[in-house]
């Protein structure tokens, strides 16, 4: 979808935070991306590589942790891991599912010197 603008946000967030920790170089940035965020990891990696060229994040590696989709059935109270969009509770079949995880789009940490 909009991987390029997400890559740009990642670069802005990390480069703004670097001086606070006296970092001049970042080796890795770890991201947590939910499985139903509509973000394509390959497109994000490519966008990041293009946009980080000649910035202080040139050569920084993105590590992407994917977060599985978990839902809570509001009818029977069970929590489940879903392979796909949580259509209906596998236990009682009701549609009223609260999505607990799978929509994350977060920077978890970064490492550098």
């Amino acid at each position: 979808m909009h991987e390029l603008s997400i890559a740009q946000s990642i670069i802005e967030i990390v480069t703004q935070d670097m001086p606070k920790h006296n970092l001049t170089k970042v080796d890795t940035i770890t991201l947590r991306i939910g499985e139903i965020t509509q973000v394509m990891p390959d497109a994000l990696l490519f966008g990041f590589e293009c946009l980080s060229k000649d910035t202080s994040l040139d050569g920084t590696k993105l590590i992407i942790e994917t977060v599985p989709v978990k839902g809570h059935c509001k009818t029977c109270g069970q929590d489940f891991v879903f392979e796909d969009w949580p259509y209906g509770c596998p236990e009682c079949g009701q549609a009223d599912i609260q999505i607990i995880s799978g929509r994350e789009l977060e920077i978890v940490e970064f490492e550098g010197s």
Partner: peptide, 15 residues
């Protein structure tokens, strides 16, 4: 040079 790890946990779409 000392390698340091910064925990951030920030929503990328925070802005």
């Amino acid at each position: 040079m000392i390698e340091i790890k910064i925990s951030l946990v920030k929503n990328v779409l925070e802005a």
